[in-house]
Amino acid sequence: MTLGELPSGGIYIDIALGLMVLLVLFLQMAVQQRTRKKNTELEKRIAAIEQGQAEVFANLDKKSNALKEIVFEKTKPMTNKLNELSKKANSMLERNEAVRHELEDQIGPLKASVDETAAKFNSSQDAIRKVVQDGKNEIERMTKEVEGFKEEIRKVKDFIRDGIIDIEL
């Protein structure tokens, strides 16, 4: 056998590599198939979810509309009443304002007179207070004077008493 006829290590490697490539291709095909299958299932689920969601939205819309109707029905009469009340309040305020103006016109001179009287009263009250205070001060002064006098009398009495004892010892 010649050297060329001798089996070399390269052929085996090629074969092994070829087998490995084939194996990888099979594996890839299997994975692709499984993935495709999974994708199909996912698409189905998504479609089911989307359908459910659409149903939920539809229900929500329906309920929301129903609620709006209920709220509207309940609040409408109140709004009317509130509007009426507001109108009444405004008219009352207007009337009051008119009355206030009228009253102010009427009591203007009277108020001035009352203010004048109050001022006079305050001033006479101050005068009375001053007189009372003066009287109080005068009484206090007199009380002090009387107390001083009393003390003087006591001293004089003590002086006389002690002086008499001097003579009687």
Binding site: D158, R161, D162, I165, D166, L169
Partner: peptide, 10 residues
């Protein structure tokens, strides 16, 4: 003594 007597008298 006179001072004591004053103290007593007063």
């Amino acid at each position: 003594l006179r001072s004591y007597i004053s103290m007593l008298a007063l």
